[in-house]
Design a protein around this nucleic acid. Structure first.
Lengths: 119, 119
DNA sequence: AGGCTGGTTCGACAACTGTCAAGATAGAGA
DNA sequence: TCTCTATCTTGACAGTTGTCGAACCAGCCT
């Protein structure tokens, strides 16, 4: 049971602690645990670049194009994509020979909102 | 040379890659490395809660109040505060017996902007 | 079928991280 | 000065993470 496609993934939605900025109130343990997983996924330069490539692609982008941008082996790229997928930040779908990834803005937005600090 | 006060810290400012959302363009390696450090600091539930306590305090908060919120030893809290400090997300200042921490919104804001995904 | 290409999974290993106990340091106060 | 409290630093240890090579699976194409 491989889980590279959307169907088999847990596909978390970060519903908890959705949108309130940090300033408004302290996080409880559960919210913090949930959100920390997402931030941890962002805490690696390779994954950040992967996400930025995926997000800035017009709609979706295939793994072959992603791999080409790095000096890393296939398994390593695959590993990082899996981490991003399990954090709910991206979504992958196989179509024919290639697998295409796209961003999940609905899960990116709460993270942005959390760190939003009014001037 | 201890560096628990503001003066001795590297106090990064995340100047690079300041404000453009991920969507606009892929990150280069340097930007990604820089930003990943900050996100990695956020990628732990304890640190996320610490930051939320500090940020949601009206102005500043002392370590004793922070420690009280966790079931962890002093050194562990101290370690996490150091990580947040070195990531440029908070700032600590000793005043008399206590050390007070405060958030650095100017370094939080770029992170929020990066993840900002227009609907 | 058989081979080719794109991606993932598995297994291993070095490097890093979170935690604690013990010891050090800084200031307040007797 | 001597002690007490608040906090940090050091050293150690188990658990996690990033990376790779080897093996595997899924579709295309002869």
């Amino acid at each position: 049971m491989s889980n590279q496609t959307a169907t088999a993934d847990p596909a978390p939605t970060l519903g908890v602690a959705c949108c309130d900025p940090l300033m408004s109130a302290p996080l409880d343990v559960e919210q913090a645990t949930d959100l920390a997983k997402a931030f941890k996924a962002l805490g690696d330069p390779v994954r950040l670049r992967l996400l930025s490539l995926i997000t800035s692609a017009k709609d979706e982008i295939c793994v072959c194009d992603l791999s080409a941008a790095f000096d890393l082996t296939g398994p390593t790229i695959s590993h990082h994509l899996k981490v991003l997928r399990e954090a709910g930040l991206i979504d992958g779908e196989r179509r024919g020979t290639w697998i295409y990834y796209r961003a999940r803005p609905e899960n990116l937005r709460p993270l942005s909102a959390l760190l939003d600090t009014p001037a």
